[in-house]
C-alpha cells in the first residue's frame, strides 16, 4: 500500500540497516534513511498546507508551547522519534502525541486534564506565554544555533573522516546509514549547539559542524546508488580517516 495524503506510512518492511531501536533507554523510529518504506511519493500542490482543521491547531499549539521555555526543539524531536506508534501515525499526529507527552512530563498538564480538556490543578508558574503581538518578532528571531568558536576546527575541507560506529544510547543526529563510513569534509558550518547533549537537557555543549559527503558506494555498496550523499555532522561524530588506501596491485 501507499502512504496516504496525510503521510501515514506503509507497514514497515524488512530492515537491513542496524536496528536503531536496540539501544537501551532510547528507541528511535524516525531514522528512515535507506530503509524499506515502500509507497508512492504523492505530489502536492504548492498552496496546500494543512489537511484538516485539527492539523492547524496541532501545529500552532506545538509552536506556542515550544516558546514556553519548558523544553527545546531537540527535546521535541527526541520525544517524537520515540513514539512507539510512530510508523502508523500521520505527521501532525506525531507532533500532537509528542506535545501531550512533553506537557505531562514537564508537569504542565496532568493526563486527566488532557482527557477532560479542562483545568484540574493550578497552572505551573514560570512558563513564558507567546502573545499574539510577539509572534512575528519571535518567528523572525528564530532560534539560531551557531555559537562563537573557542577552539579551532579539527577538520578542514577536503579531509577524509570516518563516522562513529556504535548505536547511540540517546537522541542523535547521525543516521544509522552513515555510521562507520568514510566521507570527505566539504564545508565547515561553524560551531553549533550539539543536538545530542541539548536533547538530554545537558546544555548546549557547542561543537564544530561539518557537511561531510559520502560516495554512494561507501553507503550502499557497489551494487547500490553511486550518488553522493552529504550530511551535517558534529565533530564528535567524526575521527580522522587518513589518506586513501593506495590502489591494490601497486608495487
Amino acid at each position: 500500500m501507499n502512504t496516504d495524503r496525510v503521510g501515514r506510512a506503509a507497514a514497515p518492511g524488512p530492515r537491513d540497516l542496524p536496528d536503531t531501536s536496540a539501544s537501551p533507554g532510547h528507541v528511535t523510529h524516525a531514522d528512515l534513511g535507506g530503509r524499506e518504506r515502500p509507497g508512492a511519493i504523492v505530489p502536492e500542490p504548492e498552496d496546500e498546507r494543512f489537511h484538516a482543521a485539527w492539523e492547524r491547531d496541532a501545529f500552532a499549539l506545538t509552536l506556542a508551547m515550544g516558546a514556553s521555555g519548558a523544553w527545546n526543539l531537540d527535546m521535541s524531536r527526541a520525544a517524537r522519534e520515540q513514539l512507539p506508534a510512530y510508523d502508523g501515525l500521520s505527521y501532525y499526529e506525531v507532533w500532537f502525541q509528542a506535545l501531550q507527552q512533553l506537557l505531562v512530563e514537564h508537569g504542565i498538564l496532568t493526563a486527566d486534564e488532557i482527557a477532560q480538556g479542562r483545568p484540574l490543578v493550578p497552572p505551573l508558574a514560570g512558563l513564558r506565554v507567546l502573545h499574539a503581538a510577539d509572534v512575528a518578532s519571535a518567528l523572525r528571531r528564530g532560534a539560531p544555533t551557531e555559537r562563537a568558536a573557542t577552539v579551532p576546527a579539527r577538520f578542514a575541507p577536503g579531509e577524509r573522516v570516518r563516522t562513529r560506529t556504535g548505536a547511540s544510547p540517546h537522541h542523535t543526529r547521525l543516521p544509522a546509514y552513515a555510521r562507520g563510513r568514510i566521507g570527505v569534509v566539504e564545508r565547515v558550518h561553524g560551531v553549533h549547539v550539539f543536538a545530542d547533549a541539548h536533547a538530554q537537557g545537558l546544555g548546549e555543549q557547542p561543537q564544530w559542524l561539518y557537511h561531510v559527503v559520502f560516495d554512494g558506494t561507501q553507503l550502499w555498496g557497489t551494487d547500490g546508488s553511486a550518488a553522493a550523499v552529504g550530511l551535517d555532522l558534529w565533530e564528535s561524530y567524526l575521527e580522522p580517516a587518513g589518506r586513501e588506501e593506495p590502489a591494490s596491485g601497486s608495487p
Binding site: 501507499n2 502512504t3 496525510v6 509507497g39 511519493i41 496546500e48
Partner: peptide
C-alpha cells in the same frame, strides 16, 4: 509538503 515528510 506531505511527501517531503513521508517515509517513502
Amino acid at each position: 509538503p506531505t511527501w517531503y515528510k513521508s517515509a517513502p
